[in-house]
């Protein structure tokens, strides 16, 4: 009897755990389509390129924000801090499972932060690489 209850609980919870990450997979799927349109030779997102982007020191954006690490700290596993002192949850999906699950929020922060750090919007490939890197952490 107890086993049946445990199995039932798992079955009930399964769609819940699956649905948390569903928007992230959808969004990555959309990015993949755009990436293929953007670059014919595109063959999938890369953890390495995402990592490079996260740690890159940029000189083309605003002087106050030369890198993702300016606010997100030098490790995606650690909490960051805004320049005005507010804590930011770690970027790694393993530490903050709700990362990249709200499409409006993702788009808003990519738009703002890519412009702040790089001085331009990010490409679909950069966005996908970035998320893929943080999913691997």
């Amino acid at each position: 009897m107890r086993n049946i209850i445990i199995i039932l609980i798992f079955l009930l919870l399964f769609p819940l755990t699956a649905s948390i990450s569903a928007p992230r997979d959808d969004y990555l799927g959309q990015l993949e389509k755009m990436a293929k349109q953007f670059d014919d030779s595109f063959s999938g997102f890369s953890v390495e390129r995402g990592k490079e982007l996260y740690f890159r020191k940029s000189t083309t954006g605003k002087a106050e924000t030369p890198s993702c690490t300016t606010c997100h700290s030098d490790s995606p596993l650690k909490a960051g801090q805004t320049r005005a002192g507010k804590p930011i949850d770690p970027m790694a999906v393993s530490k903050t499972p709700s990362r990249f699950t709200d499409i409006e929020k993702i788009e808003k922060w990519f738009r703002r932060n890519c412009k702040s750090v790089l001085g331009r919007e990010c490409t679909p490939i950069e966005k996908g690489d970035f998320i893929t890197f943080l999913m691997s952490q």
Binding site: K62, A63, E64, T65, R83, K108, R111, R112, N113, K115, S116
Partner: peptide
Amino acid sequence: LENHFGEDASL
């Protein structure tokens, strides 16, 4: 807001 004290904070 696009240049909000050194950050893009546009909405």
